[in-house]
């Protein structure tokens, strides 16, 4: 997978965190994903379709998801529930939509967010498409972006 597909998602994540989570986020080294399972427990997934197809997911450990959505919302959420699920879905939506401006040659449409919770869920929409995992970190903890992207 071309690095040109990865950078728009990393940049959109960093911009989102800076603008609306009020934190600096940093990207580690992208790696080819070896397992079908997401990096962490709570994942917001957006399907991508058009002249390329695939998906992007943002995946957090439970506690980090709770803290990040609290920072996004500007008010503390104490339990893992529907508020966190909604918040993670919207974070994924913003990353995918924002990244599209640097991928306009593919005429991408994004799906509504799907949020999965649990430590053994499989991120759908990636069958047969190589996936890249980008480790991310911020002062609230580690998380990951997972991208699978295939041009037609």
């Amino acid at each position: 997978m071309n690095v040109a597909f990865i950078n728009p998602f990393i940049n959109a994540t960093i911009l989102l965190f800076k603008t609306m989570v009020h934190l600096d986020a940093f990207a580690g080294k992208p790696a080819l994903k070896k397992q079908p399972f997401p990096a962490y427990d709570v994942s917001g997934i957006i399907g991508l379709s058009g002249d390329a197809q695939g998906s992007v997911a943002i995946s957090f450990p439970r506690l980090v998801a709770l803290k990040v959505v609290s920072a996004f919302l500007g008010s503390e959420i104490k339990i893992m529930g529907s508020e966190v699920v909604d918040g993670i879905g919207e974070l994924a939506n913003i990353i995918a939509g924002n990244a599209k401006q640097d991928l306009s040659q593919y005429n991408l449409s994004i799906s509504l967010p799907q949020v999965v919770v649990g430590n053994d869920h499989v991120i759908s929409g990636q069958t047969g498409i190589p996936a890249i995992i980008i480790p991310m970190t911020c002062s609230l903890g580690n998380f990951a972006i997972e991208i699978s992207f295939k041009t037609k």
């Binding site: 913003i94 995918a96 939509g97 924002n98 599209k100 306009s104 994004i110």
Partner: peptide, 25 residues
């Protein structure tokens, strides 16, 4: 979060008065 120029133009042509791209301040 829809951010491409084509989307902004489509919305403005359809009668939107202005456009804010997420993330926003």
């Amino acid at each position: 979060s829809e951010s491409e120029k084509t989307r902004v133009i489509e919305a403005l042509k359809s009668g939107a008065n202005d456009y804010i791209i997420k993330p926003f301040t």
